[in-house]
Nucleic acid binder design. Structure first.
Lengths: 121, 121
DNA sequence: GTCACATACTATGTGAAACACAGTATGTAA
DNA sequence: TTACATACTGTGTTTCACATAGTATGTGAC
């Protein structure tokens, strides 16, 4: 059985693992234009739940960094802030996906090294 | 062409993406017992270069957290500190790999959502 | 009308850890 | 001797997801 200490350690490491990939998930989900609330729902449905306190500041930071652009619109009697990727955002996203792939391959490779007859991964 | 600003932003995001996965790579590479120097070389060859200033403190932290254990030995006229995973380390590593897998699937899924006729991922 | 909930968002401090830089010690080869 | 590889330690900085708290308002039930 897992001790409370090991459980806390795992949780801590799990969050550290998630860092960085939150941005990937957000940029991925913005393949189509979204406003914050539906974006958050889509992330949750896609297996990457992100708290609103994390998501909205992140959206604003990505916009200030030029990866997203936003636009206020009134829809269904509500004021909503729609986000979309900029060309630079799409480009950087593609490069980050390649990097992510590379990291995954490296970890998978290291995971098998040392086994008898290890071949290409 | 990439502006210096975009290049710096990408590099920053890339490092953020790497966070967390350094631990995975280290635990993966310690499938077999290693000392610091060869571990570092293995990581580099495996596509996951880690600076020594990052690696040694990390090894010590993982040991203090009970995921690794170490042993000084004299070999080839040199004092070397050998590391190996503990049972708890192997267990937590397995859970983190599953989590990593889950994150990867979520990102891949979000990346395809919105395409015409999107099927199971 | 009031209440609860969902919808839609803003503000901000904290904690953790990889990174980066600097350093020591020593064996080997030229 | 010198340069380099080998093998490791020490420590401050930077970054940002997380966590918490908050505002505003439309809708439905009672």
């Amino acid at each position: 059985m897992w001790s409370t200490q090991d459980q806390a350690l795992f949780e801590n490491l799990r969050l550290e693992l998630r860092r960085g990939s939150v941005i990937l998930a957000v940029l991925a989900a913005l393949r189509t234009e979204q406003y914050g609330y539906t974006l958050r729902k889509r992330l949750e449905e896609g297996g990457m739940p992100v708290d609103e306190g994390t998501l909205y500041p992140l959206l604003r930071r990505l916009e200030s960094q030029g990866l997203l652009e936003s636009q206020w619109r009134e829809e269904d009697k509500r004021k909503k802030r729609f986000y979309r990727r900029t060309p630079a955002g799409t480009e950087i996203f593609a490069r980050l996906m390649a990097e992510w792939q590379s990291i995954g391959e490296a970890v998978a490779h290291l995971h098998t090294v040392g086994e008898s007859g290890h071949g290409g991964q």
